[in-house]
Design a protein around this nucleic acid. Sequence first.
DNA 1: TATTGTTATACTCTATAACTATA
DNA 2: TATAGTTATAGAGTATAACAATA
Lengths: 172, 172
Amino acid sequence: MTSEQPSLDATQLGVYFALIEASSLLKHAVEQQLQDAGELSYVQFQLLASLADSPEGSRRMTDLADGVVYSRSGLTYQAQTLEKRGLVTRTPSSDDERSITVTITEQGHAVLAGVFPGHIAILGDLLFAPLSRSDIETLADILGRARDHMRRTPPRSAAPRQRKKATEERSP
Amino acid sequence: MTSEQPSLDATQLGVYFALIEASSLLKHAVEQQLQDAGELSYVQFQLLASLADSPEGSRRMTDLADGVVYSRSGLTYQAQTLEKRGLVTRTPSSDDERSITVTITEQGHAVLAGVFPGHIAILGDLLFAPLSRSDIETLADILGRARDHMRRTPPRSAAPRQRKKATEERSP
DNA sequence: TATTGTTATACTCTATAACTATA
DNA sequence: TATAGTTATAGAGTATAACAATA
């Protein structure tokens, strides 16, 4: 087990808070922009971007979910929303009849294109403006390693350590 | 205007994605733990932690909102929830009759205490495990600067560049 | 008038569990 | 039996606008 020391030093706490607050502020700003410029939620944007980045603009539902959504029904919901707007199509996969292939449409590409400039502008102004070239390279390295580690680490490893509270409160 | 170059290089994109995904994975894991160990949402945890960190365990509503919540009604909602559970009290401020002073209770401290070990364990396992001491110090510096910059930067600076869709809102 | 906070309301999103269909 | 995806449903959270009270 990795975690026996139940405390963090000041620098670690600082990293934690800075990470959470920075990503929260950034995400909030970007969400606003995506909404204003393309009526997209952040998740929808991620899904479209993921498709646009895929060969043929297609992915199976399950693959599409990767790191974007934490439940299947959540993905179904978002995919339906995007389909209603004509930004993606969903068709049964040819090789595996259980799978659905999601494909980004022309319209989807158009919405993405309409959203990109503002999106990038925000990243420039908000995230990269105060950072030097070498800061950015360093960040890419460290955050990249952190992310890779988190991807690999099973979510259940640490959570069930705490025992559930004994107090059972009943409300009307 | 800061943003005329409508593109990012590969390293910048990498930083952006790594930041978003790492914080998302971390937050998701932590949210689960907070829920299991103390039936707290992340926002509620932040509010309690903010109070616990304040002199006398108290803050005015408006000050409490800082960087945690983006709308006043959202804070009212969460404060009410915490009050119902007896984790905070709300009393009119003595100096300014418009203000409400929110104070963490013994129970609130207890819930926080019950949640901390598991919380810290997750941070250790998920965020800090793959990082060296110097990585952490570097991250603290860079992310701290990024966060400070975002705090200072007015949210509206970049968003309204994209023109709003032609759909007009009507009054009832 | 400006500020502090609440309420009402509507909406988005998420997750769990039960279900269908294919491998 | 295991996997892919959907549906129903319920709950948490958020934001906007109208509001009241105090500065």
